[in-house]
Computed example of a mutant assay.
Amino acid sequence: MVARFGQPDDGHTAETRRQVKENDSMESRLWTIVRFPAGVWSGGGKPSDSDYEECEVYRIPADSLEKAKKKAQSIRARLVKKGSDLPTQNEPYKAD
């Protein structure tokens, strides 16, 4: 391919280059996600936070808080379906 008008000669459109750049800039971080006894999901604090004493606690790697909540909800559904013990503050679920 011939580069035209100063455009990179990488075979990608401007849209594709933008998407690749956005994906490269997204950083996954480890989120603390909790489910309170009333069924409300929250996150962002430390697993040892005293507010979470009665909560199910999940440690989930994700790009955003919302994605981490969805992953934790999915994990919880599988644990409930299997009849497994749910995570606690003393023994949080740690996703890979």
Rank of each mutant, 00 (worst) to 15 (best):
M1Q: 15
V2K: 14
V2N: 12
A3E: 14
A3Q: 12
F5P: 02
G6C: 06
G6P: 08
G6M: 07
A14W: 04
E15T: 14
T16R: 11
R17S: 08
R17Q: 05
R18A: 15
K21V: 03
K21F: 09
E22M: 10
D24E: 13
S25D: 12
S28V: 14
S28Y: 07
L30E: 10
L30T: 05
W31E: 00
T32M: 05
I33R: 03
V34F: 06
V34M: 01
F36D: 01
G39Q: 04
G39W: 08
V40T: 15
V40Q: 10
V40Y: 08
W41Q: 06
W41D: 03
W41A: 09
G43P: 00
G44Y: 07
K46Q: 14
P47F: 02
P47T: 03
P47L: 03
S50R: 15
S50T: 13
S50W: 13
S50E: 15
D51W: 00
D51C: 01
C55E: 01
I60Q: 02
P61A: 04
P61V: 05
D63P: 05
L65H: 15
K67W: 06
A68H: 05
K70H: 09
A72W: 04
A72E: 03
Q73D: 04
Q73P: 02
Q73R: 13
S74R: 15
I75C: 10
I75G: 02
A77V: 04
A77P: 07
R78Y: 12
L79P: 03
V80F: 11
V80N: 08
D85P: 11
Q89A: 00
Q89V: 00
Q89H: 01
Y93S: 09
Y93N: 08
Y93A: 09
K94N: 08
K94S: 11
K94D: 11
